[in-house]
Design a protein around this nucleic acid. Structure first.
Length: 293
DNA sequence: CATGAGCGG
Protein backbone atom coordinates (compact mmCIF):
# COMPACT_ATOMS: atom_id res chain seq x y z
CA UNK A 1 0.00 0.00 0.00
CA UNK A 2 2.97 2.30 0.46
CA UNK A 3 3.19 2.52 -3.30
CA UNK A 4 0.06 4.67 -3.49
CA UNK A 5 0.87 8.33 -3.57
CA UNK A 6 -0.45 10.19 -0.57
CA UNK A 7 -0.54 13.40 -2.56
CA UNK A 8 -3.12 12.23 -5.00
CA UNK A 9 -6.52 13.84 -4.38
CA UNK A 10 -8.58 12.08 -6.99
CA UNK A 11 -8.40 8.91 -9.03
CA UNK A 12 -9.22 10.98 -12.09
CA UNK A 13 -5.99 12.88 -11.78
CA UNK A 14 -4.11 10.33 -13.85
CA UNK A 15 -2.72 11.99 -16.93
CA UNK A 16 -4.39 15.30 -16.17
CA UNK A 17 -2.34 16.36 -13.23
CA UNK A 18 -1.94 19.93 -14.51
CA UNK A 19 -5.69 20.43 -14.94
CA UNK A 20 -6.54 18.83 -11.65
CA UNK A 21 -4.06 20.84 -9.67
CA UNK A 22 -5.33 23.99 -11.35
CA UNK A 23 -8.63 23.57 -9.55
CA UNK A 24 -8.98 25.77 -6.47
CA UNK A 25 -9.15 24.01 -3.14
CA UNK A 26 -12.54 23.55 -1.51
CA UNK A 27 -13.60 26.29 0.87
CA UNK A 28 -15.77 25.96 3.92
CA UNK A 29 -17.13 28.97 5.73
CA UNK A 30 -19.56 29.25 8.58
CA UNK A 31 -22.42 31.71 8.23
CA UNK A 32 -24.05 33.86 10.87
CA UNK A 33 -27.09 31.61 11.11
CA UNK A 34 -24.92 28.62 11.87
CA UNK A 35 -25.12 27.11 8.40
CA UNK A 36 -22.02 26.29 6.43
CA UNK A 37 -21.24 27.19 2.88
CA UNK A 38 -19.10 24.72 0.99
CA UNK A 39 -17.54 25.70 -2.31
CA UNK A 40 -15.97 22.99 -4.40
CA UNK A 41 -14.48 23.02 -7.87
CA UNK A 42 -14.49 20.12 -10.24
CA UNK A 43 -14.46 19.18 -13.89
CA UNK A 44 -17.70 18.12 -15.47
CA UNK A 45 -18.21 15.49 -18.17
CA UNK A 46 -17.17 17.93 -20.89
CA UNK A 47 -13.97 18.74 -19.03
CA UNK A 48 -15.22 22.18 -18.07
CA UNK A 49 -14.38 23.63 -14.73
CA UNK A 50 -17.40 23.91 -12.47
CA UNK A 51 -17.82 25.77 -9.23
CA UNK A 52 -20.35 24.28 -6.86
CA UNK A 53 -21.70 26.11 -3.86
CA UNK A 54 -23.58 24.13 -1.27
CA UNK A 55 -25.08 25.48 1.90
CA UNK A 56 -25.69 22.98 4.62
CA UNK A 57 -27.25 23.13 8.00
CA UNK A 58 -25.46 20.99 10.51
CA UNK A 59 -28.47 19.94 12.48
CA UNK A 60 -28.18 16.52 13.98
CA UNK A 61 -31.41 14.70 13.48
CA UNK A 62 -31.71 11.77 15.80
CA UNK A 63 -33.15 8.88 13.93
CA UNK A 64 -32.90 5.18 13.87
CA UNK A 65 -29.80 3.97 12.24
CA UNK A 66 -28.93 0.49 11.19
CA UNK A 67 -26.66 -0.96 13.86
CA UNK A 68 -24.30 -2.15 11.15
CA UNK A 69 -24.00 1.39 9.81
CA UNK A 70 -23.47 2.86 13.25
CA UNK A 71 -20.70 0.39 13.89
CA UNK A 72 -19.08 1.14 10.57
CA UNK A 73 -18.88 4.82 11.49
CA UNK A 74 -16.60 3.92 14.40
CA UNK A 75 -14.03 2.35 12.13
CA UNK A 76 -10.69 4.14 11.89
CA UNK A 77 -10.40 6.11 8.69
CA UNK A 78 -8.08 4.80 6.05
CA UNK A 79 -6.49 5.82 2.77
CA UNK A 80 -6.73 9.54 2.02
CA UNK A 81 -8.93 10.01 5.07
CA UNK A 82 -6.53 8.30 7.46
CA UNK A 83 -6.23 10.19 10.71
CA UNK A 84 -8.79 12.84 9.82
CA UNK A 85 -11.70 14.00 11.92
CA UNK A 86 -14.98 12.10 11.80
CA UNK A 87 -17.53 12.99 9.16
CA UNK A 88 -17.26 13.64 5.43
CA UNK A 89 -14.74 16.04 3.90
CA UNK A 90 -15.50 17.76 0.62
CA UNK A 91 -12.19 16.89 -1.03
CA UNK A 92 -12.84 13.20 -0.70
CA UNK A 93 -16.60 13.01 -0.40
CA UNK A 94 -19.32 14.36 -2.63
CA UNK A 95 -22.35 15.42 -0.66
CA UNK A 96 -25.49 13.98 -2.12
CA UNK A 97 -29.17 13.83 -1.36
CA UNK A 98 -30.24 12.92 2.10
CA UNK A 99 -31.24 9.34 2.04
CA UNK A 100 -34.06 8.72 4.43
CA UNK A 101 -33.63 5.49 6.21
CA UNK A 102 -37.02 4.03 6.62
CA UNK A 103 -36.84 1.20 9.10
CA UNK A 104 -39.15 -1.71 8.67
CA UNK A 105 -41.98 -2.14 11.05
CA UNK A 106 -40.67 -3.73 14.21
CA UNK A 107 -37.12 -2.57 13.61
CA UNK A 108 -35.18 -1.96 16.78
CA UNK A 109 -31.88 -0.21 16.98
CA UNK A 110 -29.05 -2.25 18.38
CA UNK A 111 -30.54 -5.67 17.98
CA UNK A 112 -32.47 -8.22 16.05
CA UNK A 113 -35.83 -7.64 14.51
CA UNK A 114 -38.56 -7.58 17.08
CA UNK A 115 -40.57 -10.74 17.12
CA UNK A 116 -44.29 -10.70 16.97
CA UNK A 117 -45.39 -11.05 20.59
CA UNK A 118 -48.44 -13.03 19.55
CA UNK A 119 -46.30 -15.56 17.73
CA UNK A 120 -44.16 -15.81 20.79
CA UNK A 121 -47.00 -16.42 23.15
CA UNK A 122 -48.49 -19.02 20.87
CA UNK A 123 -45.19 -20.83 20.46
CA UNK A 124 -44.67 -20.62 24.18
CA UNK A 125 -48.07 -22.05 24.90
CA UNK A 126 -47.44 -24.87 22.47
CA UNK A 127 -44.08 -25.63 24.01
CA UNK A 128 -45.52 -25.88 27.48
CA UNK A 129 -48.41 -27.97 26.15
CA UNK A 130 -50.81 -25.59 27.82
CA UNK A 131 -53.29 -25.90 25.02
CA UNK A 132 -56.17 -27.96 26.14
CA UNK A 133 -59.28 -28.59 24.13
CA UNK A 134 -62.40 -27.49 25.96
CA UNK A 135 -64.32 -30.40 24.47
CA UNK A 136 -62.08 -33.41 24.82
CA UNK A 137 -59.14 -32.01 26.82
CA UNK A 138 -56.75 -33.00 24.07
CA UNK A 139 -53.70 -30.85 23.34
CA UNK A 140 -55.28 -29.02 20.41
CA UNK A 141 -57.45 -25.92 20.14
CA UNK A 142 -61.15 -26.42 20.63
CA UNK A 143 -61.81 -25.47 17.02
CA UNK A 144 -59.49 -28.23 15.86
CA UNK A 145 -61.22 -30.88 17.90
CA UNK A 146 -62.46 -33.86 15.92
CA UNK A 147 -65.65 -33.71 17.98
CA UNK A 148 -66.36 -30.03 17.50
CA UNK A 149 -69.26 -30.70 15.15
CA UNK A 150 -70.99 -33.09 17.48
CA UNK A 151 -70.20 -31.77 20.91
CA UNK A 152 -70.33 -28.42 22.62
CA UNK A 153 -67.45 -27.26 24.77
CA UNK A 154 -67.82 -28.18 28.42
CA UNK A 155 -69.99 -25.73 30.30
CA UNK A 156 -71.71 -24.28 27.23
CA UNK A 157 -75.30 -25.07 26.47
CA UNK A 158 -75.75 -26.73 23.09
CA UNK A 159 -74.12 -24.24 20.76
CA UNK A 160 -75.87 -24.02 17.42
CA UNK A 161 -79.22 -25.27 18.66
CA UNK A 162 -82.31 -23.49 17.41
CA UNK A 163 -83.94 -23.14 20.81
CA UNK A 164 -81.11 -21.00 22.04
CA UNK A 165 -82.06 -17.49 23.10
CA UNK A 166 -80.28 -14.60 21.43
CA UNK A 167 -77.84 -14.17 24.28
CA UNK A 168 -77.45 -17.69 25.54
CA UNK A 169 -73.99 -19.06 25.11
CA UNK A 170 -72.96 -15.99 23.18
CA UNK A 171 -69.87 -14.18 24.24
CA UNK A 172 -69.81 -10.44 24.45
CA UNK A 173 -68.71 -8.86 21.22
CA UNK A 174 -65.42 -7.07 21.43
CA UNK A 175 -64.67 -3.39 21.26
CA UNK A 176 -64.24 -3.66 17.50
CA UNK A 177 -67.96 -3.33 17.31
CA UNK A 178 -68.51 -5.59 14.33
CA UNK A 179 -71.35 -8.03 14.49
CA UNK A 180 -69.70 -11.39 14.08
CA UNK A 181 -71.25 -14.25 12.24
CA UNK A 182 -73.79 -16.26 14.16
CA UNK A 183 -72.33 -19.25 15.88
CA UNK A 184 -71.00 -18.08 19.22
CA UNK A 185 -67.54 -16.84 18.38
CA UNK A 186 -66.61 -13.24 19.08
CA UNK A 187 -63.72 -13.36 16.69
CA UNK A 188 -63.95 -10.94 13.80
CA UNK A 189 -61.46 -11.65 11.03
CA UNK A 190 -59.29 -8.69 10.03
CA UNK A 191 -60.83 -8.13 6.62
CA UNK A 192 -64.30 -7.87 8.10
CA UNK A 193 -63.37 -5.38 10.75
CA UNK A 194 -64.43 -1.80 10.68
CA UNK A 195 -61.98 0.17 8.59
CA UNK A 196 -60.59 -2.85 6.81
CA UNK A 197 -58.95 -1.89 3.55
CA UNK A 198 -61.15 -3.89 1.24
CA UNK A 199 -64.52 -2.29 1.84
CA UNK A 200 -66.65 -4.42 4.06
CA UNK A 201 -70.18 -3.15 4.26
CA UNK A 202 -72.67 -3.44 7.01
CA UNK A 203 -75.62 -5.47 5.84
CA UNK A 204 -78.27 -6.92 8.09
CA UNK A 205 -76.01 -6.93 11.10
CA UNK A 206 -73.20 -8.72 9.31
CA UNK A 207 -70.12 -7.56 7.58
CA UNK A 208 -69.66 -9.09 4.21
CA UNK A 209 -66.91 -8.82 1.74
CA UNK A 210 -67.91 -6.73 -1.19
CA UNK A 211 -67.20 -9.01 -4.12
CA UNK A 212 -69.15 -7.02 -6.66
CA UNK A 213 -65.95 -5.91 -8.32
CA UNK A 214 -63.94 -9.05 -7.64
CA UNK A 215 -62.70 -11.30 -10.37
CA UNK A 216 -61.80 -14.91 -9.92
CA UNK A 217 -58.84 -15.81 -12.05
CA UNK A 218 -58.20 -19.47 -12.73
CA UNK A 219 -55.54 -21.38 -14.60
CA UNK A 220 -52.90 -19.33 -12.85
CA UNK A 221 -49.39 -20.71 -12.96
CA UNK A 222 -48.01 -22.05 -9.73
CA UNK A 223 -45.09 -19.68 -10.21
CA UNK A 224 -47.35 -16.65 -10.34
CA UNK A 225 -46.78 -13.79 -7.94
CA UNK A 226 -49.30 -11.42 -6.52
CA UNK A 227 -47.37 -8.36 -7.58
CA UNK A 228 -47.23 -9.46 -11.19
CA UNK A 229 -50.90 -10.23 -11.24
CA UNK A 230 -51.62 -6.86 -9.74
CA UNK A 231 -49.54 -5.14 -12.40
CA UNK A 232 -51.44 -6.97 -15.08
CA UNK A 233 -54.84 -5.96 -13.76
CA UNK A 234 -53.86 -2.42 -12.73
CA UNK A 235 -53.96 -1.54 -16.41
CA UNK A 236 -57.74 -1.50 -16.23
CA UNK A 237 -58.29 0.41 -13.02
CA UNK A 238 -57.46 0.69 -9.36
CA UNK A 239 -56.92 -2.72 -7.86
CA UNK A 240 -57.83 -2.85 -4.21
CA UNK A 241 -56.84 -6.39 -3.44
CA UNK A 242 -55.09 -9.36 -4.95
CA UNK A 243 -55.41 -12.67 -3.25
CA UNK A 244 -53.38 -15.46 -4.71
CA UNK A 245 -54.37 -18.77 -3.20
CA UNK A 246 -51.31 -20.61 -2.03
CA UNK A 247 -50.69 -23.89 -0.35
CA UNK A 248 -49.84 -23.11 3.23
CA UNK A 249 -47.32 -25.92 3.38
CA UNK A 250 -45.48 -25.57 0.10
CA UNK A 251 -46.24 -21.88 -0.50
CA UNK A 252 -46.90 -22.67 -4.13
CA UNK A 253 -49.78 -20.99 -5.89
CA UNK A 254 -52.82 -23.22 -6.03
CA UNK A 255 -53.81 -22.03 -9.46
CA UNK A 256 -56.45 -19.45 -8.82
CA UNK A 257 -56.65 -15.97 -7.41
CA UNK A 258 -58.98 -13.09 -6.73
CA UNK A 259 -58.53 -9.57 -7.92
CA UNK A 260 -60.75 -6.79 -6.60
CA UNK A 261 -61.23 -3.44 -8.23
CA UNK A 262 -62.35 -0.17 -6.75
CA UNK A 263 -64.79 0.26 -9.60
CA UNK A 264 -66.89 -2.48 -11.02
CA UNK A 265 -66.76 -0.94 -14.48
CA UNK A 266 -63.00 -1.43 -14.46
CA UNK A 267 -63.48 -5.00 -13.36
CA UNK A 268 -65.78 -5.54 -16.32
CA UNK A 269 -63.14 -4.26 -18.74
CA UNK A 270 -60.39 -6.30 -17.10
CA UNK A 271 -62.56 -9.39 -17.24
CA UNK A 272 -63.19 -8.91 -20.94
CA UNK A 273 -59.61 -8.09 -21.83
CA UNK A 274 -57.76 -10.57 -19.67
CA UNK A 275 -59.96 -13.61 -20.07
CA UNK A 276 -57.88 -15.74 -22.41
CA UNK A 277 -54.75 -13.69 -21.81
CA UNK A 278 -51.51 -15.65 -21.67
CA UNK A 279 -49.50 -15.41 -18.48
CA UNK A 280 -46.41 -17.52 -17.85
CA UNK A 281 -47.07 -20.52 -20.07
CA UNK A 282 -50.79 -20.67 -19.22
CA UNK A 283 -53.90 -18.97 -20.50
CA UNK A 284 -55.85 -17.19 -17.82
CA UNK A 285 -59.52 -17.59 -17.33
CA UNK A 286 -61.10 -14.54 -15.78
CA UNK A 287 -64.65 -14.41 -14.53
CA UNK A 288 -66.55 -12.59 -11.86
CA UNK A 289 -66.33 -14.12 -8.43
CA UNK A 290 -69.37 -15.56 -6.79
CA UNK A 291 -70.06 -15.12 -3.16
CA UNK A 292 -67.66 -16.98 -0.97
CA UNK A 293 -69.05 -19.88 1.01
C1' DC B 1 -59.27 -28.99 -11.03
C1' DA B 2 -59.95 -24.64 -8.33
C1' DT B 3 -64.72 -19.51 -4.52
C1' DG B 4 -59.54 -16.47 -0.40
C1' DA B 5 -57.40 -16.39 5.43
C1' DG B 6 -58.17 -15.20 9.71
C1' DC B 7 -57.98 -15.67 15.78
C1' DG B 8 -57.53 -18.19 19.95
C1' DG B 9 -54.98 -20.36 24.50
Amino acid sequence: MAAISQNRTDWADDGEADLATALPAPQISTNKDGTETIVTYFLNDEGKKVKRTQRIKKTVIKRYEKPSVAERKQWAKMGLEAGRAPGPHPDTTTLGENIVFNPQQGFKAGGQQEKNPNEDRKAEALKKMQIKCRICSGDHFTTKCPFKDTMAPDGEAGAGHADMGPDVGRETLGALGAGGPAGGSSYVPPHLRKGAASGGERMGGKYERDDLATLRVTNVSEFAEEGEIRDLFERYGRVTRVFLAKDRETNLAKGFCFVSFADRSDAVRAQEKLDGHGYLHLILRVEFAKKST
